[in-house]
Simulated assay, not measured.
Amino acid sequence: MSTRSTTEQADAGPTSGGGQAGEGLSHLVQSLSHLGKRHDKVSVHQIREEIGERSFGPFLVIPSLIELSPVGGIPGVPTALAAVVSLFSLQIAFGMKHLWLPDFVENRKMPGDKLKDGLNFLRPPARWIDKVLKPRLRWITRPPAIQVIAAACLLLAAAVPPLELIPFGSTLPMGAIGLFGLALMVRDGLLAFLAAILAGGTVYLLYRLVL
């Protein structure tokens, strides 16, 4: 798949939260919250169907949102989310047109009520974020920069398992991944710079953990 196809996928719309132009982070949060309301258990496959496949950004944002929700407090969940991010990041880096997950990941489920409650809590900040973000420095969200972002997300995902041992430690790398995803959704290169700063904070935290 050419880098041109990758660009088209990443740039499907300025705020393509669910794959349609004009839909931002708040729409993405609302859609997933309603999904949790409709089902006692929500599978990864159901989440993929809900958001569609026009934009790569949501596939990086959603694991971060889940990690910030009460579901992220379940032991092992941050590491499982990081594994999903790793698979997506590899495929984005290699210019895959349609992102793929193995069946055993697609069939993983999480409590619908916790997903709903956690995402409902994020609705106000999501609406504020939608007002602040806008397309700027777009070259940072296009190839070859998009491959660099994917590589950074892969490295951040690798940092999650050891940081999960620290209370809220995994929130830092997953937050950086979420910001990178948002940057791709709205084509906001400035946000990608902010994500890079958070990524630097992750490196520092790992350094302190090792020492």
Rank of each mutant, 00 (worst) to 15 (best):
M1W: 11
T3S: 15
T3V: 10
D11F: 11
A12K: 13
P14S: 13
P14H: 13
V29W: 00
R38E: 11
R38I: 05
H39Y: 12
D40G: 12
V44Y: 04
I47Y: 01
R48H: 13
E49D: 10
E50R: 15
F56V: 09
G57K: 08
G57E: 04
F59M: 09
L60C: 08
L60V: 07
L65H: 02
G72V: 08
G72R: 01
G72S: 02
G73Q: 14
V77Q: 00
V77A: 00
V77Y: 00
T79C: 04
A80F: 02
A80I: 07
M96V: 09
K97V: 15
L99K: 04
L99V: 08
D103C: 07
N107P: 05
K109Q: 11
G112P: 04
K114N: 04
K116M: 09
N120E: 15
F121Q: 09
L122Y: 01
I129L: 15
D130Q: 14
L133V: 15
L133T: 11
P135Y: 09
R142V: 09
A145V: 03
I146D: 09
L156F: 02
A159H: 07
A159E: 06
P162S: 08
L163W: 05
P167C: 11
F180T: 04
A183K: 02
A183E: 03
D188S: 06
L190M: 11
F193T: 05
A196W: 08
L205D: 04
L209K: 14
V210P: 03
L211F: 10
L211H: 13
